[in-house]
Amino acid sequence: MGRSKGDLVVFIGKRLLQLIPVLLGVVLITFIFTHLAVPNPCAAWAGPKATPSVIKGCEQFYGLNKPLPVQFEDYIVGLVTGNWGIDPLTHTAVLPSILAAFPATLELVLAALFLMVVVGIPLGVVAAASSGRVADHLVRIFYLSGWSTPTYIAGAVLFIWASKEFGLSGGAFSTITSPVPTITHMSVVDAILAGSPSATADALEHLVLPATALAFINMGVATRMTRTSMLETLPLEFVKTARMKGLTEFWVLYKHALRNALITTTTVLGLTTGAMISGTVVIESIFTWPGVGLYAYDAITSYDFNGTIGVVIFFAVVVVVANLIADVLYGLLDPRVEWR
């Protein structure tokens, strides 16, 4: 094992293979739970006045009359061939809907991540450099307040305050004045691609609130990890070496110490990103952000078992892939790591 490109490819390949049993487990558990929770969704969909024959037809259409093992087998076959089932209410296919919604979620999470990196990491450095003094305490109060605020409260408060104060609106496309062609399904990127400054400003305006809320809640991850690993790094001898070169304290902190502290911070941020993507259900429904979280919310509240299982599987994949990316980043940042 070493650090060559080949080693990295083998490493990633192995990790992707390990994904298969994990996903099978996730599918099995979600499948069983959704079917136990709502044994006969047809009755719920069709409404109280539906005739038995209508319900029967529905059951036949969705294969709900077959034994559970057979349903599971059918589902697995569909999963592998890309047919993740159909949403009974909108009659749209699950996988394409999720894939179409995902870029919006990714955009939201990446925007939040960006804020966490540019605000949270420097705050962590400041806190560590002034450890035990006023600045350190202020930073800790800031991120702890974000951490201990429930998502829905942070989101709702920000939403109400900002709409009053600035007239900003949360809903993604609620007031979009100049629609632009959908290419990437990311509102800001699409607006930039369309070359329209007004649309870009508009899209950014919509992104800012949910991204800020998401970033505020998760800021603690970036700041605390940076602070902790900076505190571990600063007493190390090489920091003194950096000082003795004649570097100013800024470069000692932000180049030599932070470069090492970032190894752990980046890993934790990678893991958090997976959790944030799968945790956008609340924030997306508050801000009606048209991402996977909103899709999940709709699927669950409408007994759409195909949609629900599909979203859960999708989130599982996202979390595993985010972990894989975190591991790869860790190895890339730390030259002592060998791929294995």
């Binding site: 001898e237 090489f238 070496t241 003795m244 030599h256 090492n260 940042l333 730390d334 030259p335």
Partner: peptide, 15 residues
């Protein structure tokens, strides 16, 4: 002023 430290294991930046 330049300085050489006691522990060469830790005195270079590992990254």
């Amino acid at each position: 002023i330049g300085m050489i430290f006691q522990e060469p294991i830790n005195s270079l930046n590992p990254a």
